[in-house]
């Protein structure tokens, strides 16, 4: 078995794949931004002490974490229209991936918030601070450095999961490689390049996140 690797084919398809990489990065970025905000909202809603809200959100998050992302993507895109919600592949994909990862990120936030010592809450109360200021000024800034490693892992995770969006036709990297394959009947180069591009982007991210954590700790004087 011999691989028939053609460099001139590689150079011919590379620009198209790199263009699609921008879409992949955009999908990961938007999805991650949604997940960051929703995740925080879910984490905070778990701490309100309103039992109904708390248990409903908890069950929903458990459900999201226990079902595959690809099923959620299909469900939102294909079942949505049957109940009158028709979304473009991009919108459906961003909602699915953002919601999915928000379920994981809410856990990261929760652990970060719980790592802040009880004495900090008590000091806030002794200073008569509002709950809002307690979170905004004291607890969340201290929770952040604890949460950054987990947040970084899920950033890489969301990035590597964007190929799943190809199943509903989002023109990201994987979808583009598929298209090249079916146009030219050559799969070796496009799929290899997809792997190499993902590797090249994932690897430095971990290092950058460690750097960011150190920076944040220094900036907060911790």
């Amino acid at each position: 078995m011999i691989f028939d690797w053609k460099w001139d084919f590689v150079w011919a398809i590379l620009p198209r794949l790199l263009g699609a990489t921008l879409n992949t990065l955009m999908a990961a970025g938007i999805g991650y931004a949604i997940a960051l905000v929703l995740g925080l909202a879910f984490a905070l809603s778990q701490r309100t002490g309103w039992r109904l809200v708390t248990s409903m959100v908890r069950e929903m998050l458990e459900f999201i974490r226990s079902t595959p992302l690809v099923v959620q993507i299909f469900f939102i895109f294909y079942v949505g229209p049957q109940i009158g919600v028709t979304l473009s592949p991009w919108v459906a994909g961003m909602i699915a991936i953002g919601l999915h990862y928000s379920a994981y990120l809410s856990e990261v936030y929760r652990a970060g918030i719980e790592a802040v010592p009880k004495g900090q809450w008590e000091a806030c109360r002794a200073l008569n601070m509002s709950t809002r200021d307690t979170y905004r000024r004291i607890v969340l800034p201290q929770a952040l450095p604890h949460a950054i490693p987990g947040m970084g892992n899920y950033l890489v995770g969301i990035f590597k999961d964007t190929p799943m969006l190809s199943v509903i036709g989002v023109t990201e990297l994987m979808q583009t490689a598929n298209a090249i394959g079916s146009e030219t009947y050559r799969f070796l180069e496009p799929y290899t390049l997809v792997g190499v591009i993902f590797l090249a982007l994932s690897l430095p991210t971990a290092g950058l996140i460690r750097l960011l954590e150190r920076q944040v700790r220094r900036k907060l004087g911790l």
Partner: peptide, 28 residues
């Protein structure tokens, strides 16, 4: 009308001494 000091101080570690003192007066 009540203030409290704790055994383990409970200063805010991400703020300077001055910022610790200013936090309540400014925010509250």
């Amino acid at each position: 009308s009540i203030g409290m000091c704790f055994q383990h101080f409970n200063l805010f570690p991400h703020m300077t001494a001055l910022e610790n003192c200013m936090e309540g007066p400014v925010q509250v």
